[in-house]
């Protein structure tokens, strides 16, 4: 599906510009023939089902027997008053912010270090990229063992007097009452952030490295001629030049972290008192275990909207850039 989609897209963007308008040549027919199946399939299986999910989310279908009667916003109301969903929102916000911040900082740092023309660069590059080749499920299982309070890294840390409970910790850092839950940073989430960062930083490094390579040497030389120190050079010139890359990294990481399911499901599950639960896990359990289909659809729609907050402005601005 993916490949079919990409190839014809090029055809349409280049061909009509090159030719005079309205005359349907064989190229046009060909382009349309290539495009039509994927357009139809996308409208049916992506947008069609988004609409369908939206419809289910305002229905009364909360058992094995479908009930299409209109429920209004009842399911959403239930969700936002639900302890578990409120905890999920807190966890998603905390996870997304921490995860993206660390990935950006670490990605830039490692990319800059790799860019110093050091020996064995490709070896390091491969080491950083390698976790990307794994599935989140594998990462989750491995880090679950590493952070297991009684068998993991604690075996090294205990002699040093450190005894973290990692993902079994139910403490909420800086917590205050918010709705039904305590809002703050759930300490258990930090273990999950570490695992996610380990997996995704390589991707950010690759993007930043490409960005660094695209900066012409003249820029650096000119700065040095003007007497800028290395620190000033990076802080005032290189990093600002990398800003478009940062925007892309944020967009890509945000849609991963807002929809995260597999890592959490494999690593911690919902966690005691739902300290590591996320909407994806709740949606899966409530829909397919509890048979609350309408509630599950409502969670899915909330997740879609949260991703849209990041993606839509990006799409709009990139369309403006094109025209």
């Amino acid at each position: 599906m993916e490949t079919v989609k990409i190839a014809p897209a090029k055809e349409t963007t280049t061909v009509p510009v090159a030719r005079k308008k309205r005359k349907w040549t064989a190229d046009h027919w060909l382009a349309t023939a290539f495009l039509a199946p994927s357009v139809v399939l996308i409208f049916l299986f992506v947008y069609g089902f988004i609409g369908w999910t939206g419809y289910v989310s305002v229905s009364n279908w909360n058992s094995l027997v479908p009930d299409w009667s209109f429920a209004g916003l009842k399911n959403y109301q239930y969700l936002f008053q639900d302890f578990r969903f409120q905890a999920d929102l807190r966890n998603t916000i905390v996870f997304t912010v921490l995860f993206i911040a660390v990935v950006i900082v670490l990605g830039q740092l490692l990319a800059i270090l790799l860019d110093q023309k050091l020996r064995g660069e490709s070896l390091f590059r491969n080491i950083f990229f390698f976790p990307m080749a794994l599935s989140f499920v594998v990462t989750g299982v491995v880090w679950q063992w590493l952070f297991n309070p009684s068998t993991g890294v604690n075996l090294f840390l205990k002699p040093l007097g450190l005894d973290s409970k990692w993902y079994t910790d139910t403490t909420i850092l800086g917590g205050f009452q918010w709705g039904k839950i305590e809002f703050g940073i759930p300490l258990a989430m930090i273990a999950v952030v570490v695992a996610a960062v380990w997996q995704m930083t390589g991707f950010a490094v690759a993007m930043y490295l490409a960005g660094l390579r695209a900066i012409p040497d003249e820029v650096r030389e000119a700065a040095r001629m003007d007497g800028a120190t290395e620190l000033q050079l990076y802080w005032k010139i290189i990093l600002p030049l990398l800003r478009p890359i940062t925007v892309s990294v944020i967009i890509i990481m945000a849609h991963i972290s807002l929809k995260i399911f597999d890592l959490i499901y494999a690593m911690t599950g919902p966690g005691a008192n739902f300290v590591t639960d996320v909407p994806g896990v709740y949606m899966f359990e409530t829909t397919f275990r509890g048979n609350y289909y309408a509630n599950g659809a409502a969670i899915a729609i909330v997740m879609l909207l949260s991703v849209a907050i990041f993606i839509v402005p990006y799409l709009i601005s990139s369309r403006k850039g094109e025209s």
Partner: peptide, 9 residues
């Protein structure tokens, strides 16, 4: 009150 501390792992 009598369970193991790492029960949730």
């Amino acid at each position: 009150g009598y369970i193991n501390e790492d029960h949730s792992s």
